[in-house]
Amino acid sequence: MTDTSPPETPTQPLSQERRDLLETLRVHRHFLRTTVQGLTEDQARTRSTASELTLGGLIKHVARTESAWADFAVNGPSSMEGPADGDYSDWENGFRLTEDETLAGALARYDEVAARTDALVETVDLDHAWPLPPQPWFEPGATRTARRVFTHIVAETAQHAGHADIIREAIDGQKTMG
């Protein structure tokens, strides 16, 4: 069987592009994590806006999404296939903390995912491209390079950090970003 995983590049020294990606990821992760500092479990589960989103759910969602895209950067489309039966109910649970989950657990998972992604940003061939899996939200036949995957993770994290800031401000008035 042929190995189709992207080739790794030397880890030292990191290119400016890789350093920029890592710094930008870390900045937006910091903003997201700051929004949940000092929260109780109840507050982490609070819907404080018209949205269904909660702070704990956002942490869980961003970790899950980052992990899926990092898997894609290494393993390609097979790592992002949807359920064979079309049942996306588990996807909905990715936006909320279930009864057996805690904010601390979601943050610990996010730390694990972030460490893995950072290691991939340092080593994966950024030009390696994979075809996107057949999903209704992807253009048929489109591909993504590892570079574009990591840029997408930055955008996803930044977008949800903004959501989290609004949700937190509605809970107790605390603002993360201004």
Rank of each mutant, 00 (worst) to 15 (best):
M1K: 13
M1V: 12
T2L: 15
D3V: 09
D3F: 13
S5V: 06
S5Q: 14
P6E: 05
P7R: 15
T11Y: 10
Q12H: 15
S15I: 05
R18M: 06
D20R: 09
D20C: 06
D20N: 12
R29H: 12
R29E: 07
R29A: 04
H30C: 05
H30K: 15
L32G: 02
L32D: 01
T34M: 09
T35M: 02
G38T: 09
L39M: 13
A44C: 10
A44R: 01
T46M: 14
S48W: 04
T49N: 05
A50Q: 11
S51A: 10
L55T: 00
L55H: 04
I59K: 00
K60H: 09
K60Y: 06
T65H: 06
A68P: 00
A68V: 08
W69K: 01
D71E: 14
A73K: 01
A73I: 03
V74I: 12
N75W: 08
S79L: 03
S79T: 07
S79W: 02
S79E: 05
M80L: 15
M80K: 01
M80Q: 07
E81T: 10
A84H: 10
D87P: 06
S89R: 15
D90N: 11
E92C: 06
G94R: 11
G94V: 06
R96D: 02
T98V: 12
T98N: 11
E99N: 12
L103N: 04
G105L: 07
L107T: 04
E112F: 07
V113P: 00
L120F: 14
E122L: 01
D125N: 15
D127N: 13
H128G: 02
P131M: 05
P133T: 10
P136F: 13
P136R: 11
P140W: 07
P140R: 13
A142W: 11
A146M: 05
F150C: 07
T151I: 13
T151Q: 15
V154C: 13
A155L: 11
E156C: 10
E156A: 07
H163T: 02
A164C: 06
D165G: 03
D165F: 00
R168G: 00
E169L: 02
I171V: 14
D172M: 08
D172P: 04
G173H: 07
Q174F: 11
K175Y: 06
T176H: 02
M177R: 14
M177G: 04
M177C: 08
G178W: 13
